[in-house]
Structures are given as structure tokens and as C-alpha cells.
Design a protein around this nucleic acid. Structure first.
Length: 278
DNA sequence: CATCAGGCGAGAC
DNA sequence: GTCTCGCCTGAT
């Protein structure tokens, strides 16, 4: 068990922000605990106020999870950089202050965000889980929990479009089929993407079938950690139209724009519900 | 029953 | 280049 203290870390907010579709709350026996599968490992973590408990060795934390959860970034500093006159952004950041931009796996993000289009978080999670169970490698954690790795491009490319339809992917089945085959046939080299800057990486990703501007930006932000990427979905477009009629001040926030996008997105997504429930 | 969900591709112009 | 439209499926 590794214990970390951090005032800007919330497993609930990270899970609900919807950037990670393989993070689940363990509701039955371990309330308040979240499980995540990434980089071949299964991790359970829980939180008590600003103390976070990672159920793993110190070595595993240092090698994988410290980077995965972006623990070295000072989110308080990002929030301090917000224009105090921008009341909406100040409120959004206060509401979502525990969100972190994860360093997720590239291939998984490509497929996950193709699935995400015209879709909701609940159904996306179900689709991803089905894909993992059907085409991913089965493993067992030290505590006996059985989990599945995200399927490799090779494994996914062996699925027919009909097979993919059976995973409730709908019209996105063809996109995933085409994309998996494009990657297997080296029409795009995923390995070299992380070395590119935001503009170049984004342009490469647009070559993939089913990847447009919005999905490419999500991949840049959540896998390549290009924090200047600012994905524009229906929520964000609504917020921009209502709160920033003269445009969002990208010139002011630059490389932190993507983090602020997550605050704006999460605020719009969850704030109304939070108000209703209280 | 209609509408919409964290859009995209294809085709028309 | 910009616009429109159809699209799987489940929730409301």
C-alpha cells in the first residue's frame, strides 16, 4: 500500500469525468474504492479526504501510477493561473478541482474515443468492457480479481465487422475494423506519435477512420498528454456559446487549455445533477 | 413515440 | 472549403 497526500486529487471526479472508461467504482464490498486497469496492471485505490491509498508496491507506484495519475503536475498552480474576473471558469475549476489529466495508453484511447462519439459514458464503458472480455488477454490480480487487458491492435484486427456489431458498437464497428487494420498494416505508426508535437500528432490521428477533430483532440489530451488540446464536444460548444461569445482566451492559457476544458466539461456535465440532488 | 448522447464520413455544392 | 444527412443503440 502506498499513501500519497494531495489536495487536488479526487478518484470520484477522475472516474466521472469520463476520460477513463476502465475505471470502475467497486460498489458491492469495497465502497469508496475504485479499480482501474492500465499498462498490464490492475489497481485498486481509495481515498480519505486528501490522502490517497494505492494498493500496490512502491516500485509499481513509481514506475506506473505516479505518471498515470499525473502526480507530478501542480494542479493548484494551474487553478491559480485562472483569470479571477472569469467567474464561470473559477467556479468550474473549484467544482472539479480533483480532476487530473491521466496518461493513458494510446491504442486504448484511439478505440475508446471512436466508441465515444454520439454515445454516453455508461454505454461506452459497456462497449469497452465487452471488447476487453472478448478480445483482450485475461489476467488475475494478486488479490484474485480476474481482469482483462485492452485488446491489442492485432487481436482487434482479427474481429470481423459483424463480430464488432455484436459488441454493441453499432455504426462505429466499421471505424474500429478499419482503424485496427490500418494500424496492423502500419499505415500509421503509433510508436512515433508520442515524439510529435500537438499539431503533427493531431494531423496523423485524423488519418484514422472514425477519428475526426474532436476524437483526435481527446486522444492527444488523454494519451499523448498534449495539454494544449481542447476537445470541442456538444457540452463544450454549449458552454463556449453561452459564456465566451467572444471566444475562449486560448492565448492566456496556452498549454493549460486542455486541463481547463476538463473543468468546463465536468462542470456542465455534473453540476446540474449535483444541484438537483442537494 | 421522438429525441439525443462527449461526431464522423460521404456526398453535394 | 462548407453544409447536410444518415447512422447503431439505449435512456428518458
Amino acid at each position: 500500500m502506498v499513501q500519497i497526500t494531495n489536495d487536488h486529487f479526487s478518484i470520484t471526479q477522475i472516474s466521472r469525468s469520463g476520460q477513463c472508461f476502465r475505471m470502475n467504482e467497486l460498489t458491492q464490498e469495497k465502497a469508496g474504492t475504485v479499480a482501474v486497469v492500465a499498462f498490464g496492471k490492475y489497481l485498486e485505490l481509495h481515498q480519505d479526504d486528501n490522502r490517497i491509498f494505492f494498493d500496490c508496491t512502491q516500485e509499481e507506484y513509481d514506475c506506473i501510477w505516479k505518471n498515470y495519475f499525473d502526480m507530478e503536475t501542480d494542479y493548484a498552480e494551474v487553478i491559480r493561473g485562472i483569470d479571477a474576473a472569469d467567474m464561470y471558469l473559477v467556479s468550474a475549476a473549484a467544482f472539479g478541482a480533483g480532476i487530473r489529466i491521466l496518461h493513458q495508453e494510446l491504442w486504448e484511447m484511439i478505440i475508446s474515443f471512436i466508441i465515444s462519439q454520439q454515445n454516453n459514458i455508461k454505454r461506452i464503458r459497456k462497449c469497452v468492457q465487452l471488447l476487453c472480455e472478448k478480445y483482450g488477454e485475461q489476467k488475475e490480480a494478486k488479490n484474485g480479481v480476474v481482469y482483462y487487458e485492452f485488446p491489442t491492435p492485432d487481436a482487434l484486427s482479427k474481429a470481423s465487422i459483424e463480430d464488432l456489431y455484436a459488441c454493441n458498437l453499432g455504426y462505429r464497428s466499421r471505424y474500429i475494423y478499419e482503424t485496427a487494420n490500418a494500424v496492423v498494416h502500419k499505415e500509421i505508426d503509433l510508436e512515433s506519435l508520442s515524439a510529435l508535437d500537438y499539431e503533427a500528432a493531431n494531423k496523423e490521428l485524423l488519418k484514422l477512420c472514425g477519428v475526426g477533430k474532436k476524437v483526435a483532440d481527446c486522444i492527444c489530451l488523454f494519451a499523448l498528454h498534449k495539454t494544449e488540446a481542447f476537445p470541442r464536444d456538444t457540452h463544450i460548444n454549449k458552454v463556449l456559446a453561452a459564456q465566451y461569445p467572444n471566444g475562449f482566451p486560448f492565448e492566456k492559457y496556452g498549454g493549460n487549455s486542455g486541463i481547463l476544458q476538463q473543468y468546463l466539461f465536468y462542470y456542465d456535465l455534473e453540476h446540474k445533477e449535483a444541484v438537483q440532488e442537494s
